[in-house]
Design a protein around this nucleic acid. Sequence first.
RNA 1: UCCUUAGUAGCUCAGUUGGUUAGAGCGGCGGACUGUUAAUCCGUAGGUCGUAGGUUCAAGUCCUACCUGAGGAGCCA
Length: 479
Amino acid sequence: MEKIQIAEILRSGKVGTEITVKGWVRTRRGSKNVNFIALNDGSTINNLQVVAEIEIFGEEIFKSINTGAAIGATGILVASSGSGQSVELKAEKIELIGLSDPDKYPIQPKRHTLEFLREMAHLRPRTATFSAVFRIRHAMIFAIHSFFNDRGFFNVHTPIITSSDAEGAGEMFRVTTHPATNPPLNEEGKVDFTQDFFGKAANLTVSGQLEGELFAMALSKIYTFGPTFRAENSNTSRHLAEFWMIEPEVAFCDLTDNMDLAEDFLKYLINYALEHCMDDLMFLSSRLTEEEKVKPADQRSMELIEKLRFVADNDFIRLTYTEAIEILKNSKPNKKGKFQYPITGYGTDLQSEHERFLVEQEFKKPVILTNYPKEIKAFYMRLDDNGQTVAAMDVLFPQIGEIIGGSQREERLEMLERRMDEMHIPKEDLDWYLDTRRYGGCPHAGFGLGFERLMLFVTGMGNIRDVIPFARTPKNCEF
RNA sequence: UCCUUAGUAGCUCAGUUGGUUAGAGCGGCGGACUGUUAAUCCGUAGGUCGUAGGUUCAAGUCCUACCUGAGGAGCCA
């Protein structure tokens, strides 16, 4: 008898047919005549109830059917006489596949804190919450490729190990085969990288953008989707040392096209989740609602599915930095001195309190902020005609803040070189990058989407460590 | 990195102005009972109070340092 997935059974299983299922025991409720086993195989948030009569199996076997154990069950699918489910499996045969010592198995059929489960990252996918999160994560990965593929984009694998450290997106992790103690030194007494594996200093990538641009200047529309690494000592619920980033790059494309792409992309992904992950979203939603009950009414956020629909159905607000400053300057909290960092005028750096005000108070929907002062943005962003601002865009989401950062790139060789000089970017290290401006340069634009930040939004989870299988953060590299 | 806060049983927590043998619920185990649904009822085991120092007749409780978690800030995606 071939086994079928529980998702398949619950979707289209026919009452009266014989089936075999294999999975892990979530709970077992025993009694004198009959035992009820909630079985889950990870294919869906829902369990299949296996009904096992003691008359058939005896009492001994049930001592091994504990939470966490792997078992197989064969029997007839029948309509359930209980109220919690429509169908259940009336077991004729039960196979013990992998035992789980109930005295030691740490995941109990009760609520655990996410912090506790985080320490058990190897077992947490067996919980309802994390299985839901990681099924949604898969759906989002799939949807990302599908979105770009449908629109004629090509996926490019940009390098993970890179010698380019000129981008300045953050602190980098060094990649070396030098011994940890007494590495070879040069005449100046510094580490001699010419003797290292690559013959030069190498790091883990902080972004595939620059290499992505090279391919956009040949294939027109590309995207990367890979791991990126930041050695920043960031201890927040929104940062990881290792995270996944999606970076589309499009030739013959300006800032407006870029904003359109970003907005379409995010809405597509959210709609995809609503269409394909409703069971999991509903579970996460009710879990969140439960948690919110302890919060004061004014601090509660919108129900998860309602929130997703709202973002998918409404246009994002588009606003220049200069307009945002005006709004903030005249806002109530600024006038009443409620901002920790008061807004005085053009040039003030926007803090998260300001971004949150715009997104959560003023507009109550996602905001795309554009045309920031050149001083606070990267060298490759295209200088606006006013000579002051650059064609940058940040997409700000409620609760999360910046989910996307992007820009139209500076395609004019002279301007780019001038910006690099101003910002002390070594041109000789990026000669290959400048070549794209020397030979057939064209207006182009792109952005980076932090995949785990998208996951935070879609799942409603509060901590980024809970939407990636194994989180890497300062002082934490378990598993 | 900075600010705030926490660490007591497997989990979630209580533990008064320092004072005898550190408690509860859940989970585990044993039993009873029942087509159960976070089942219910009875019983039972389970603790170097984060670590290291210190103050004191006496420290879970006070002090210092460190470690770890959480919330917020900065950096950003």
